[in-house]
Simulated assay, not measured.
Amino acid sequence: MDAFVLRFPRTGIVNVVFNILDRLSRDPGCDLTILLQDYQFARPELAQFAQSLKSKIVEETSLDRKIYRLRRFAMDRGLTAKLPLSCQIRRAIDRCDIYHCTDWYYFPSRKAHKNVITVYDMTTRLFAQHHERTNIVKEARKARNLRDFDKVIAISESTRRDVIEYTNVKPENVVTIPLGVDATYEAPHVINRDDLLDYYRIPRERRYILSVSTIEPRKNVVGLLDAFRLLKQSSQEYDDVLLILIGPMGWGNHELTRHIKDYPYKDQIFFPGYVALADMPSFYRHASCFAYLSFYEGFGIPILEAMKSSCPVVCSNASSMPEVIGDCGELVTPSEPCEAAEALRRILDRTSYADDLRTRGLKRSLTFTWDRCVERLLEIYRA
């Protein structure tokens, strides 16, 4: 299985791959080998996990290096990363029975009985303006290879529809398998609210709205700031409310930087950056509301994390997000901050309504589990 992404911090796709590998590694009928670029990892727990599994390094030969130089000169000028070569990948996977590409090594094995690939979204096709060129090129090449895989796994019905519409894959070969949440959320150790906020230097006496994502244009942080401004301006009742935006800084945040420069409530916005996974359930649990106004998601794991943590949710009515939230939260148009401000007011003003959303959201979250995801995945491997 492709495990290239384990080299990055535990967000997004990294968490997906980790949780799938964790369960597959414990299945007695699965002889698992992971594919890595090297043994460099951003997080020690991921290094320890990867080293507990059988692994194979995608080796680079002198011929590969020559091909890279030629391709960079002819095709790939300006790319910030080396995209994989088919010859490299096929050398590494030529003896497997089943090959599963989870992101980076997007070439099928010519000898495997079955080739499977996971597609998380089509955002580089639909919102190319929100991506770096390297990612756009990588995803375009991956999309061209989808027809060579036996099964394409989409993480939501929305993603499945997009794959069928924008690639040449037959609909019967695209299967939807929803995701789950990390085991950290199953029986979390909830940190005392004051201790948590003191540690991250956030005023402990204030209510807060939480948002969790990589800080980049597609996540519509500017739209969330506009909704927060409208909320604050609507009544002095919200003077105590803060906005906490958890997640690493991504790329292309020039507009956000300009927006914050003259923002009237910038002293009431906190960017803690990357937060340890063990602390995340506590941030959700103590929040008055979770807000997620992304323009497009392949699934929307933070929405599910909030539901699992009994936190009421306001999220976009776009792409996959309605599939996750169902009727257990507030759905709003991401380009209309006034809708989000109204939804936030309803939750902040009506304790009984917020409590109802907490209860219904938690109940719905129980239908999304990694065990079910991997059970379905194993059915596809063995079919």
Rank of each mutant, 00 (worst) to 15 (best):
T333V: 05
L35S: 06
A306S: 12
D349N: 06
I13G: 03
S55C: 13
D27Y: 07
G180M: 00
D64H: 12
L256E: 00
C315V: 05
R95Y: 09
H259F: 14
L243C: 08
R346Q: 12
V116E: 03
S316C: 05
E59Q: 12
A340W: 00
E157L: 09
P188C: 01
R90Q: 15
S320T: 09
Q88V: 01
P171F: 13
L243P: 02
L224C: 07
C315L: 02
G29Q: 12
D76V: 00
G180F: 01
A140N: 15
S319I: 06
N19R: 00
D27F: 05
A341C: 07
L85E: 13
Y265T: 07
G361N: 02
S365E: 05
L63K: 10
Y105E: 04
R161A: 14
S282Y: 04
P203R: 09
R201E: 05
E157K: 06
D64S: 09
E132M: 13
N317Q: 11
R350F: 15
A383V: 07
I34N: 01
G298V: 04
F73W: 15
V275A: 10
C87P: 04
L63V: 14
G78A: 10
Y199T: 10
R229G: 12
R133V: 11
E379I: 11
S320M: 09
S86Q: 13
L24C: 08
V241M: 06
Y296R: 04
L24I: 01
D103F: 15
E172N: 11
T11H: 08
F270C: 02
L230M: 14
K66N: 10
F228I: 02
D267H: 13
V222H: 03
E165V: 05
P302M: 10
V222S: 06
E323Q: 09
F127M: 13
G300M: 07
R147Y: 12
V275N: 07
H189Q: 14
L126I: 08
T124W: 03
T369L: 11
F368V: 10
F299A: 09
G12S: 11
P322V: 06
R360N: 06
S288K: 15
S316P: 11
R358S: 03
I191V: 15
D162W: 04
V14G: 04
L197H: 04
A81R: 15
R218Y: 00
L21K: 00
R360T: 06
R72M: 11
C373I: 03
R125G: 07
E186M: 00
I246P: 01
E59G: 08
E186C: 09
H130S: 15
M307T: 03
W370D: 00
N115A: 10
R95W: 14
G326C: 05
L32G: 05
I202V: 14
R206D: 13
V190G: 08
T351L: 11
D279P: 03
F368D: 04
R144W: 09
Y353Q: 00
T11E: 14
L32D: 12
V190A: 04
A187T: 09
M321T: 09
S86N: 12
T359D: 09
P248C: 13
Q37E: 15
Q51N: 11
L146V: 04
S235F: 10
D97Y: 06
I89D: 00
A42I: 02
P171N: 05
R193Q: 14
K111V: 10
S310R: 15
T124R: 13
T257F: 13
S288T: 05
I98F: 09
P28N: 13
C311M: 06
F368M: 13
I246F: 02
R43Y: 12
Q233L: 14
K261M: 08
L83F: 10
N145Y: 15
